[in-house]
C-alpha cells in the first residue's frame, strides 16, 4: 500500500495554501485518506476523477486534493454532480457530503439521486452534528443527545442514513467508520467500481462540537467508541436484536444491479436519433 508521504506527494495540491481548516483530531482527514488510498489502489487517473462537495467542514475536502474539484453550495453537491456526470459520463464522480448537507438541506436531492441510479459515488461523513457552524443538531443527532441548539437534549429522532438511501433506491450501500480505515478504503473501492448510485456512510467524530457538548472525550475516546460499536455485517447476521442494541452494522450492506441513468439516456439518444426528431 502507498505510504503516507507518497500519498501526500501524489494527491495533495502542493500549491494550495496549507494548513487545512480542520481541527486537531477531526475524523474528516482520515476518511479523505481512505478515499485517496482507494483511488490509488484502483489506479485511476487524476484527470478522470471529479470530486464534488457541498458546504460544511466535510465540504472543504476537495480543495486540498489534485483532481477536478467542485465545491458547491450547501446541500447541492448531488445535483451539481448529476449535471457534470451527464455532461462527462466518462468521469468518475465522487461526492463528499456531511450529514446535514446530505440529509437536511440536501435530503431531497439525495433520495432522488438514489432513485435515478446515476453512476455517482457519495461518501457521507456522518459526525452527527453541524460541525462547521459550531455544533447545532442535525438529522442524525441521536435522540436525547445534546447540541448547541438543543442543550437540554434532542427531541427529534435521527435518520438511519444507510436505511434511508436503500429505501430510496441506491444500488450500493456501505457503512464504515473513521476508525476502520482499511475496511473503509475497501468499501470505497467497491463503491467506485459499482455501476450506479453508491453511498458510503462513514461514522466519524467531531471532537470540537458534538464530542465536547456530549462529554464524549477527545478524538481518541471517540475513535475507541467507533471501534466498540461497529459490528461487521457477517458477524451481525449471527447476533440477536438484543445483542445488536446500540451497535452499528458495518460493511457492504447492499449491492444490486439496476439500469444506470446515463446508460439509459444513451439509449434514449439512439432511439430519438433513429426517429430523427432533430
Amino acid at each position: 500500500m502507498i505510504s503516507n508521504s507518497e500519498l501526500v506527494k501524489k494527491y495533495f495540491r502542493y500549491n494550495k495554501k496549507f494548513p487545512h481548516i480542520w481541527c486537531p483530531g477531526c475524523g474528516i482527514g482520515t476518511i479523505l485518506g481512505s478515499m485517496l488510498r482507494a483511488i490509488d489502489d484502483l489506479e485511476l487517473e487524476k484527470d478522470d476523477i471529479a470530486f464534488v462537495s457541498g458546504i460544511g467542514c466535510t465540504g472543504r475536502a476537495p480543495v486540498y486534493v489534485d483532481f477536478n474539484t467542485l465545491h458547491t453550495t450547501h446541500g447541492r453537491a448531488l445535483p451539481f454532480a448529476t449535471g457534470l456526470k451527464l455532461a462527462r459520463p466518462e468521469l468518475k464522480v465522487i461526492v463528499a457530503t456531511g450529514d446535514g448537507d446530505s440529509t437536511a438541506i440536501g435530503g431531497n436531492h439525495l433520495i432522488h439521486a438514489c432513485r435515478r441510479n446515476i453512476d455517482i459515488t457519495t461518501i457521507i461523513f456522518n459526525n452527527y452534528i453541524y460541525g462547521m457552524t459550531g455544533g447545532q443538531y442535525s438529522p442524525t443527532t441521536p435522540h436525547g443527545d445534546k447540541a448547541y441548539t438543543c442543550k437540554l437534549g434532542n427531541i427529534e429522532r435521527p435518520f438511519n442514513i444507510s436505511a434511508l438511501v436503500e429505501a430510496a433506491g441506491a444500488t450500493f450501500v456501505g457503512r464504515s467508520t473513521s476508525y476502520h480505515t482499511l475496511q473503509l478504503k475497501n468499501i470505497i473501492k467497491r463503491a467506485i467500481q459499482h455501476k450506479g448510485f453508491s453511498v458510503v456512510e462513514v461514522i466519524t467524530h467531531c471532537p470540537t462540537t458534538y464530542g465536547r457538548i456530549n462529554r464524549k472525550g477527545g478524538a481518541v475516546e471517540m475513535l475507541e467508541w467507533q471501534k466498540e460499536v461497529a459490528v461487521d455485517r457477517e458477524k451481525a447476521a449471527k447476533m440477536s436484536p438484543e445483542e445488536l442494541e446500540g451497535k452499528i452494522v458495518t460493511g457492504i450492506l447492499l449491492e444490486r444491479e439496476l439500469p444506470e441513468f446515463c446508460e439509459q439516456y444513451d439509449t434514449i439518444i439512439e432511439k430519438a436519433q433513429s426517429l430523427d426528431k432533430g
Binding site: V52, L70, T72, T73, R76, L78, P79, F80, A81, T82, G83, L84, K85, L86, A87, R88, L91, N108, H109, H112
Partner: peptide, 20 residues
C-alpha cells in the same frame, strides 16, 4: 433531465456547463 426542483435544475446546468 427533469430535476426534483429548481434548485437542483440550476445546480445541474452549472455542473454540466463545467463539464463543457
Amino acid at each position: 433531465i427533469q430535476m426534483e426542483d429548481e434548485i437542483g435544475s440550476i445546480a445541474a446546468i452549472i455542473g454540466a456547463s463545467i463539464g463543457g
